[in-house]
């Protein structure tokens, strides 16, 4: 167990999410972290579930899907190594927006959002440090989603 925490420690310290974050905060956040492995085809979470965790993908690939009755789910995005997943934990009502399904064997670090939210409420400087790391991710996903909407490869004039 200690060995595993140690490993996690090392992995988290290297993750870009913690770049420039004060040591104390990193240790604090690590206190909410755990390793997880998801098999190909399994769900990490589903749309509408409480967003009480977020994830750092260590290895593997996860599809964000929208379930459509009577059809195959629509994949709106795929996430891979080193990416953050499930920013819904940051904003009320703290519900997952999509189904997250592993496309291959995927190793994740899960972070307990409930625990972290409480700590952020107590310490706004920590809260700001975390928001500052999530805001660019949210913005980049929004920009990417809007670019997808342009249908740039679509038949011209259609």
């Amino acid at each position: 167990m200690t060995g595993e925490t140690h490993g996690l420690d090392r992995i988290l310290a290297r993750h870009p999410f913690f770049d420039g974050m004060p040591e104390g905060y990193r240790v604090l956040i690590q206190g909410c972290a755990a390793n997880a492995v998801v098999k190909a085809g399994d769900y990490v979470y589903r749309e509408g579930e409480p967003a009480d965790r977020f994830y750092l993908i260590r290895e593997g690939r996860v599809a964000l899907e929208v379930y459509v009755p009577g059809r195959k789910p629509i994949v709106v995005d795929t996430l891979g190594s080193n990416e953050l997943m499930n920013w819904s934990w940051l904003l009320p009502p703290y519900r997952c927006h999509f189904d997250a399904r592993a496309l291959e064997l995927t190793r994740l670090i899960t972070l307990d959002a409930v625990c972290l939210r409480a700590k952020m409420d107590e310490d706004p400087v920590l809260g700001y440090a975390v928001y500052k790391r999530f805001a660019p991710v949210v913005a980049a996903r929004l920009a990417a989603a809007r670019r997808q909407l342009t249908d740039m490869y679509g038949a011209p004039g259609s």
Partner: peptide, 14 residues
């Protein structure tokens, strides 16, 4: 690809 359904195991996104 910009859009796909679940049969596609590759990447989705710009």
């Amino acid at each position: 690809v910009d859009r796909a359904s679940a049969g596609w195991h590759g990447q989705v996104g710009v």
